[in-house]
């Protein structure tokens, strides 16, 4: 099969098969990412219009089993410790499945708020790793729960300012190098950041995460999401990027890899599909670039921001309309 179009049935089958690999050592070695993986798989399915391909009840039950009652958050796997990353994944999954009543909201909010440090930064858990990614996770989780007003935004913004670099990008901590995966909250120099992001596109159409590094499908989403928020999606070559993402598909087993010819995984499958949705690829559902969740869902919750993705194309080969 050729990789000039998105192989939806194969990807659906690939995502369905992920839970059936229990004889692979790799499956067990990645238990610490299980809840994240379920969020990636579910969101990719929603964007491809196949939300029901994974069993809803079974999924909700698994999320419930990941609850860490001692800490008051969700772990990535039953029996593991709660962490902010998996707590966000749990809230995203339950929001998408319209099952937020399973969340002990007050306790989760308390857990998330307890992770904010006096300087405004946010830790991933009680062991204290600090990263701007965690600040994003905290804001998104609280926002989905309707409790963002309890978060100290002034301090958080002051902290983010300290992570900002002259090139318009953000590092993972003050002094850190700008990284395309760190850029989701903002108060930004739009011209400068737009320039830096547009220059992440390399000659084969893919995006890298930092200057003079290799391209990778997951940056399609990291870079595109911020460009959509800046309403500057037209500053890159969307056709070339579309071709690049499609070429990283596995035309036999399904799934999308970091680049053409590599092993696929659910992380890159999700971010590849998410990128294609923002690029207006035909037949896909809209993705909200701020939450990286189905746009319709975020709209229903009244949380939609003023982002702008490329218009959905009708047919394969149709050119995106640069309006």
């Amino acid at each position: 099969m050729s990789t000039t179009e998105l192989l939806v049935p194969l990807h659906v089958k690939y995502i369905q098969s992920l839970g059936e690999n229990k004889d692979d050592l790799a499956y067990h070695l990645t238990a610490h990412l299980r809840l994240n993986a379920i969020y990636w798989g579910l969101t990719a399915l929603c964007i491809m219009g196949h939300q029901d391909a994974l069993d809803r009840e079974e999924m909700i039950k698994f999320v419930d089993d990941c609850w860490d009652d001692e800490i008051g958050g969700y772990a990535a796997h039953p029996g593991h410790d709660a962490h902010l990353l998996s707590t966000l994944s749990a809230i995203q999954i339950l929001t998408t499945q319209d099952a937020l009543e399973h969340v002990k909201v007050d306790r989760v909010v308390l857990f998330i708020l307890s992770l904010q440090q006096p300087d405004g930064s946010v830790a991933g858990d009680q062991w204290g790793e600090i990263d701007t990614r965690f600040l994003y996770c905290a804001v998104q989780a609280l926002s989905l729960l309707g409790r963002l007003d309890e978060f100290n935004k002034e301090k958080a913004v002051a902290y983010l300012r300290r992570c900002r670099n002259f090139d318009g990008g953000f590092g993972s901590s003050p002094g850190g190098e700008s990284h395309a995966a760190q850029g989701n909250l903002h108060e930004v120099d739009e011209q400068m950041l737009g320039w830096w992001l547009a220059e992440r596109q390399v000659p084969n159409g893919g995006f890298n995460g930092r200057p003079e590094k290799l391209e990778d499908v997951c940056y399609s989403f990291w870079v595109l999401s911020v460009l959509a928020i800046l309403r500057k999606m037209t500053w890159i070559d969307s056709e070339k990027l579309t071709t690049f993402i499609l070429s990283a598909q596995d035309p036999e087993g399904g799934g999308i890899a970091d680049r053409p010819g590599d092993m696929v995984d659910v992380f890159h499958t999700h971010f590849g599909v998410a990128g294609l949705s923002l690029l207006g690829y035909p037949g896909l559902n809209d993705l909200d670039p701020v939450y990286c969740m189905p746009a319709e869902l975020i709209k229903r919750k009244g949380l939609t921001k003023a982002w702008l993705a490329l218009p959905r194309r009708d047919a394969i080969g149709g050119k995106p309309d640069h309006e």
């Binding site: 990645t30 596995d250 890899a257 970091d258 010819g261 590599d262 092993m263 995984d265 659910v266 992380f267």
Partner: peptide, 12 residues
């Protein structure tokens, strides 16, 4: 797998 980077695909 959950997340691979830079691992070549092989057919078996």
């Amino acid at each position: 797998m959950v997340s691979n980077h830079n691992v070549k695909r092989t057919r078996v």
